[in-house]
Amino acid sequence: MSPVTATPYVGMRIPDIVTEITTAQLFLFSAATWNPHRIHYDKPYAQSEQFEDVVVQSHLHACLLSQAALAPFGPGATIRSISWQNRAPAYPGDTLVVSGEVTEVGEADGRVLATIALLEHRSGNIVCVRATATVAVPSMSTAGEGA
């Protein structure tokens, strides 16, 4: 049975996830996703598009958001849905901080469903991403995989 490490409740604060972004991580993420878009690895090109440096991938931001949403609830928790909007770019050397709060709790298929409002800031307190995720958390009496 999946361990449950926290039970969501409205107003619950999600522990911050802090990530120091490096060019190595951007390279690996582009490689793992076969993403040849030059703004992610070619600094002169990125600057020609008015970015300060190579740009953190939109999907990498979202990965950090999903990790923050799932972390409090143990390995049996799953993302049911996630929606995000990119607001500002982030660059290598930035510290990205994801924070969140549970805004709604329900139940479906024997699982607790937690809706979480998420925010990602970069250095300078600039909001990079706003998001909402719904996480399915196994109740004490359920086990097994499920979306």
Partner: peptide, 26 residues
């Protein structure tokens, strides 16, 4: 700009420079 693979390779972007704006996943 280096783009042009997979699920957006078929779209007629012309000379547009493309970046991700967000997603909604179910």
């Amino acid at each position: 700009d280096g783009s042009g693979v997979g699920k957006e390779s078929w779209l007629p972007f012309g000379g547009l420079q493309i970046m991700g704006g967000g997603q909604s996943l179910d």
